[in-house]
Write a protein that binds this DNA or RNA. Sequence first.
DNA 1: TTATCATATGAGTAATTGTTCATATGACGA
DNA 2: TCGTCATATGAACAATTACTCATATGATAA
Lengths: 119, 119
Amino acid sequence: MTEKEAELCQHTCDHPDVVDEVRKAMPGERLQKDVAQLFKVLGDHTRIRILNALYRSELCVCDLTSILGMNQSAVSHQLRVLRDAKIVRSRKQGKNVLYSLDDSHISDLIRLGFEHVEH
Amino acid sequence: MTEKEAELCQHTCDHPDVVDEVRKAMPGERLQKDVAQLFKVLGDHTRIRILNALYRSELCVCDLTSILGMNQSAVSHQLRVLRDAKIVRSRKQGKNVLYSLDDSHISDLIRLGFEHVEH
DNA sequence: TTATCATATGAGTAATTGTTCATATGACGA
DNA sequence: TCGTCATATGAACAATTACTCATATGATAA
């Protein structure tokens, strides 16, 4: 739809003032993109399983591989996504790399997600 | 990785007991899939923008089309995704269909998401 | 050093997804 | 009834993504 069409649409609608108000109250695009990105990273079965495991304990890649019953490469790839999103952090310990949740906000988010789904 | 390899991996790792504990404490697969699905639906820029708009007011498709500056078909498609996920609900009013957030849990989730991103 | 183990990563691929275009549905006013 | 408006939906397409395979890195042990 072109901008002109959207404009027209606004005029014909029932609540042009509400629309204007909402438009002004909308958060910035950057912020909304970041939030969408955060949820997108949380929105994957494998990654949710990883986070549930890390919610209980700091674990190495090998532990996670075993817990999830997946191949090590797949787990590492997903850990990278989680690390890039600053949802988990890692530290080296000898040959192993130990992962843990980065932030308590994340646990809250996941908990709330489970609460919602469980009704 | 085969199951046998995963098994082997567990033995070589530093914390086989922790791994066992975590494995037992993991939520059911169904539940984890549902949570991942919920976050996945929230994890899209357009849908987050729709939810932010509806957070302020009940709105018809036309209002949303105008606020987002997108074509009507795209908005309708995303509303369907949100409706299927029971994140928004709709009611008819004459020619229009009015959408609103379905549940306060959802507002909480989104608010938490923004709080996290804003640091 | 060399062999082995834990982890990371690039390429390739199949599946999913968001948007557009065209069209359908269904309600209202003339 | 007819035309118009608001919304919904199917098909097509481009972009993204999760996984696998093969290989690289980097640390430890012999």
